[in-house]
Deep mutational scan, measured.
Amino acid sequence: TYYTVKSGDTLNKIAAQYGVSVANLRSWNGISGDLIFVGQKLIVKKG
């Protein structure tokens, strides 16, 4: 599943929405910090 980042989104918010961990979101998307951008597509695997 792909999720497109919207204004106001955070990794924590997206992780909670999908029932996954922030660590997994980072791993699946090659993100090291907490910086995400509006319009960015993130890979999300269902929890």
Rank of each mutant, 00 (worst) to 15 (best):
T1D: 11
T1K: 09
T1S: 11
T1A: 10
T1H: 13
T1Q: 12
T1Y: 14
T1C: 06
T1R: 08
Y2G: 05
Y2S: 08
Y2K: 06
Y2Q: 08
Y3L: 04
Y3V: 07
Y3H: 10
Y3R: 03
Y3C: 04
T4E: 11
T4V: 14
T4S: 08
T4G: 03
T4K: 08
T4D: 06
T4I: 11
V5H: 00
V5N: 01
V5M: 03
V5R: 00
V5W: 05
V5S: 03
V5I: 08
V5K: 00
V5L: 03
V5T: 05
K6L: 10
K6W: 03
K6S: 12
K6Q: 14
K6G: 09
S7R: 10
S7V: 14
S7F: 11
S7C: 06
S7W: 10
G8N: 07
G8R: 05
G8K: 06
G8T: 06
G8P: 03
G8D: 08
D9W: 01
D9F: 01
D9S: 02
D9C: 02
D9Q: 02
D9R: 00
T10P: 01
T10A: 05
T10W: 03
T10F: 04
T10S: 10
L11Y: 03
L11G: 00
L11M: 08
N12V: 12
N12S: 14
N12P: 13
N12G: 15
N12I: 13
K13G: 14
K13I: 11
K13L: 13
K13H: 11
K13M: 12
I14D: 00
I14C: 02
I14N: 00
A15W: 01
A15E: 02
A15Y: 01
A15Q: 02
A15I: 02
A16P: 03
A16L: 14
A16E: 12
A16D: 13
A16T: 12
A16S: 11
Q17Y: 13
Q17N: 11
Q17F: 14
Q17G: 07
Q17W: 13
Q17V: 12
Q17R: 11
Q17E: 13
Y18T: 08
Y18C: 04
Y18R: 04
Y18A: 07
Y18F: 14
Y18M: 11
G19S: 10
G19M: 11
G19A: 10
G19F: 08
G19V: 06
G19L: 09
G19T: 07
V20D: 03
V20F: 04
V20G: 03
V20I: 12
V20A: 07
V20T: 11
V20E: 08
S21L: 07
S21P: 09
S21Y: 04
S21D: 10
S21Q: 07
V22S: 08
V22T: 10
V22N: 04
V22E: 09
A23I: 11
A23W: 07
A23C: 13
A23N: 11
A23M: 09
A23V: 10
N24H: 12
N24S: 14
N24E: 15
N24V: 12
N24A: 11
N24K: 10
N24R: 09
L25S: 00
L25A: 01
L25M: 06
L25P: 00
L25E: 00
L25Q: 00
R26V: 09
R26P: 00
R26E: 06
S27Y: 14
S27M: 15
S27H: 15
S27G: 09
S27E: 14
S27V: 11
W28M: 07
W28N: 03
W28A: 04
W28Y: 05
W28R: 02
W28L: 06
N29L: 01
N29Q: 01
N29T: 02
N29Y: 01
N29F: 01
N29I: 01
N29C: 01
N29A: 02
N29H: 01
N29V: 01
G30L: 10
G30V: 08
G30A: 13
G30T: 09
G30N: 13
G30E: 11
G30M: 11
I31L: 15
I31Y: 03
I31A: 03
I31F: 08
I31R: 02
I31K: 03
S32L: 13
S32M: 12
S32H: 15
S32A: 15
S32F: 11
S32N: 14
S32Y: 12
S32E: 12
G33W: 06
G33L: 08
G33C: 05
G33Q: 09
G33Y: 07
G33M: 08
G33R: 07
D34H: 10
D34Q: 08
D34C: 09
D34V: 07
D34P: 05
D34L: 07
D34S: 09
L35K: 12
L35D: 14
L35T: 12
L35S: 13
L35C: 10
L35V: 13
L35A: 11
I36F: 06
I36H: 02
I36R: 02
I36D: 02
I36A: 04
I36V: 09
I36C: 04
I36L: 11
F37L: 10
F37I: 12
F37G: 06
F37Q: 09
F37E: 11
F37P: 05
F37W: 12
F37N: 10
F37Y: 12
F37C: 08
F37H: 13
V38G: 05
V38L: 09
V38E: 12
V38P: 13
V38Q: 08
V38H: 07
G39C: 05
G39R: 03
G39T: 04
Q40C: 05
Q40R: 05
Q40D: 08
Q40E: 08
Q40I: 05
Q40F: 04
K41T: 14
K41A: 09
K41N: 10
K41P: 06
L42D: 00
L42Q: 00
L42N: 00
L42S: 00
L42K: 00
L42C: 02
I43C: 07
I43A: 07
I43E: 07
I43K: 08
I43S: 05
I43N: 06
I43P: 00
V44Q: 01
V44S: 02
V44D: 00
V44I: 15
V44G: 01
V44Y: 04
K45P: 07
K45I: 13
K45T: 13
K45D: 15
K45A: 15
K45M: 14
K45L: 15
K45F: 15
K45S: 15
K45V: 12
K45G: 13
K46R: 13
K46G: 15
K46H: 15
K46L: 15
K46F: 14
K46P: 15
K46A: 15
K46M: 15
G47C: 09
G47R: 09
G47Y: 14
G47Q: 13
G47K: 12
G47E: 15
